[in-house]
Amino acid sequence: MSFISPRVLSRLGVLGLNGRNRNYVARYNPRRAFPLVDNKLETKRILEAAGLATPALLFVVRHQFEVRDIGARLEGHASFCIKPAKGSGGKGIMVIERRSGDRFVKASGAELGIEQIKRHVSNALAGLYSLGGQPDAVIVEELIEFDPSFSGLSHEGVPDIRIVVFQGYPVMAMLRLATHASDGKANLHQGAVGVGLDLATGRAIRAVQYTRPIREHPDTGRSLDAISIDDWRNMLLLASRCYEPTGLGYLGADLVLDRSKGAQLLELNARPGLAIQVASGCGLLPRLRAIEARVAEHRESAEERVAFAVEAFAAQPHA
């Protein structure tokens, strides 16, 4: 067993779970704002109201009896994404890429019948994927068409970009790539690859899987060093503008890059994880403190905030 000394950790400015919960989540995220982000339907509603780009909602299933008609309502939609409104950590998300006859083809290539989709929706409605098993609603939304620059970056799942936003300032970003080990999920602790991104440029700093540095995607073999996200400034802006409508001082914005529509917000997280620090190879604390000092003196628009972050948090080249 090897451990890092707490003194070294704190010199690196690494934020721990207790510190995050007590000093950031509890202090900057008002409780009443949590339901907004814990419920994807609500999130979608406020994001749309604020004019922030998010995948279009096809329809919502709220009751078990509606499950019968799902086949008819899916008519005409070849690709879509089914999400439980209160699912957390990517639980219960089902991605259908295309149809093959009357079968539905998942991202992994597995084929499902309409019965299996109905069962999935019924489970989700009963609260299988929601916190505490509460009854849930199910969202069916348009599927993102990934920008070609992402091809080969993700096994099965969705490559998304997590940006931690503190009081409206983007502070750290990473690209999360699903792997075979993570079962198509973008959770780092399940084995997804985290690619730390330079906040100034959107270029990869380093990549890790299970906290260990890697250089290639373990499944596709694509090199991770050369990753560079297009439309980066827009992405930062989109993430940064989530602050006002939600009131969440400390949030994690999950974004994707759509081939035609550009940056899209997938979901927001009021308790973003800490693995981003490992992926980026630096701690959050110095940046969070810099923002706290900045906010004490300035009131800035989203553009100004992004400009400040790009300036202040550009990656320093290191060995």
């Binding site: 067993m1 090897s2 451990f3 890092i4 000394s5 707490p6 070294v8 950790l9 690196l12 690494v14 721990g16 779970l17 890790v208 906290t211 260990r212 540095p213 620090q277 490992v278 190879g281 701690g283």
Partner: peptide, 9 residues
């Protein structure tokens, strides 16, 4: 966390 972040060394 001292173990989780050990590679930050």
């Amino acid at each position: 966390e001292l173990r989780r972040f050990r590679d930050m060394r």
